[in-house]
């Protein structure tokens, strides 16, 4: 069983103890095309589930990244700020956006698991 959860806005969240790591899915990075810019929140910011956490831009599009869960920002990925291509290269891993200290783990239950998300993406094609 995977500890990773997905939203229908194509964000993923992976939880380790009370720390939630958030990024965009591989499907999302493919749809966006070459990522050229990432705007990340300040560490210490409080986010509620559904709040805008970050912005990701390709040449022709700008998208908001919404936080799937609530919590305080404890870390942001400086690597993708400096080298946005990292999002395209490893969206589900090194291309993560922010880490939150989770305030309400029950929010995770509302999100899709890997199989459900795969089915959801398949339905979009």
């Amino acid at each position: 069983m995977s500890d990773i959860r997905f939203t229908d806005q194509h964000e993923w969240v992976r939880v380790d103890a009370d720390i939630a790591t958030i990024g965009i899915t591989d499907y999302a990075q493919e749809q966006l095309g070459d990522v050229v810019f990432v705007e990340l929140p300040e560490v210490g910011k409080e986010l509620a589930a559904g709040d805008e956490a970050a912005v990701v831009e390709s040449v022709k599009a700008a998208s908001e990244v919404y936080s799937p869960v609530s919590g305080e920002v404890v870390d942001v990925n400086g690597e993708i700020e400096a080298t946005p291509a990292g999002v395209n290269e490893d969206a589900m891993g090194d291309g993560w956006f922010v880490k939150l200290r989770l305030t309400d783990p029950s929010e995770l239950d509302k999100l899709m698991d890997e199989a459900a998300y795969a089915e959801f993406v398949a339905s979009l094609e």
């Binding site: 810019f37 831009e57 390709s58 040449v59 022709k60 599009a61 700008a62």
Partner: peptide, 9 residues
């Protein structure tokens, strides 16, 4: 840097 502009944003 067109993502700042009205036709995209």
């Amino acid at each position: 840097l067109s993502t700042r502009e009205q036709h995209i944003r």
